[in-house]
């Protein structure tokens, strides 16, 4: 088991390095740099820009920049964010918890919701309820992220102004609230982005879980369970679900990238101050170090997520546990 984890961590490191290199190359090959885009001030002379570029090493050949960057990474440095005027590490350290909160809530809620929907569907397979839930899942499944986010925003902040428009907390009032008030304020801001992300993710969970349950039902051990005198509900909840959860655990690992990109879009629309928000803005301002730093953290999250899913799978399936 330890060897397996070590090998997977090694693979993860290689993947992250490759992603970092590609991102680094792509963003540097795109026209423009931080000082042509941000410092569009006519008072800033070309000479000053040159000096700035030299100061930040942007006049060096790309491979050299890359090697220097990797060297810095190894020391735990991720460079300087031009647009925030802060170390990249600090910018990401503030943004990461917000993204993790959003993704974590959406991950748990979407799997819980998706699994429950699938159980209800399969318990009444072929009925109107099954078909209606299936149609709703398909609707959310085929809906583009940003489209649902904008709809949710319109519906619940404008037509029915229940929730705040954006941000993680109320920019003015939050400081003046007591502990309870702060928690409520945070929750109120969390609901819309988390709900949007949950609905999007749970649609594929429900579809996948339903198929997995239907796959398991013809198995001989389900017939054995019927023979014992269990009710169909007990059979579904105990015997079928435990087995049908195994492929869903794999789905958790696979859904990480989608959840992360979904979170990026949704953060942008709800002005949720997470990594996605920071990175998307950084692309606009050609803040290379922040973009590359964000992508590296994102790819670490994805690879760790899939490793965790594999470990969970090995734990949940006794046939793999003994090895």
């Amino acid at each position: 088991m330890i060897r397996f984890i070590a090998r997977r961590l090694g693979q993860a490191a290689v993947i992250v390095a490759i992603v970092a290199a590609i991102t680094f190359a792509l963003i540097h090959l795109a026209p423009g740099d931080p000082f042509s885009a941000v410092l569009d001030n006519p008072n800033v002379s070309e000479k000053v820009r040159e000096t700035l570029r030299a100061q930040y090493g942007l006049d060096r050949p790309l491979p050299e920049q890359f090697v220097r960057y990797i060297g810095a990474l190894a020391r735990g440095e991720m460079g300087w964010s031009f647009s925030h005027d802060l170390p990249v590490r600090e910018v990401l350290a503030t943004a990461l918890p917000n993204t993790l909160l959003l993704m974590g809530v959406a991950l748990v809620a979407s799997f819980a919701l998706g699994i429950i929907v699938a159980l209800v569907q399969v318990a009444r397979r072929g009925s109107i309820i099954d078909n209606v839930l299936g149609a709703i899942s398909l609707f959310f499944f085929s809906m583009p992220d940003f489209w649902l986010a904008i709809l949710a925003l319109l519906a619940l902040t404008y037509w029915l102004p229940i929730f705040p428009v954006g941000g993680a907390v109320d920019p003015v009032m939050h400081e003046y609230l007591g502990l309870g008030g702060r928690i409520v304020d945070r929750l109120k801001h969390l609901v819309l982005p988390a709900l949007t992300l949950t609905l999007l993710a749970s649609a594929s969970v429900a579809r996948y879980q339903r198929a997995a349950l239907l796959d398991v039902l013809p198995a001989d051990y389900i017939r054995t369970a019927r023979l014992k005198g269990l009710t169909e509900k007990e059979i579904l909840r105990r015997h079928a679900l435990r087995n049908a959860l195994l492929p869903i655990i794999t789905l958790i690992g696979l859904s990480f990238p989608a959840l992360l990109t979904g979170a990026f879009f949704i953060e942008r629309i709800f002005a949720w101050p997470g990594m996605g928000y920071a990175v998307v803005n950084a692309i606009g301002t050609r803040d290379y170090p922040l973009v590359v730093g964000g992508v590296i953290i994102g790819s670490i999250m994805v690879t760790l997520g899939s490793l965790l899913a594999d470990l969970l799978y090995a734990w949940a399936d006794p046939r793999l546990r003994s090895h």
């Binding site: 001989d220 051990y221 054995t224 087995n243 399936d317 006794p318």
Partner: peptide, 12 residues
């Protein structure tokens, strides 16, 4: 049943 292999639930 005939199939002792598959008649038992693998996860319990």
């Amino acid at each position: 049943f005939q199939e002792p292999m598959s008649a038992l639930n693998p996860v319990f």
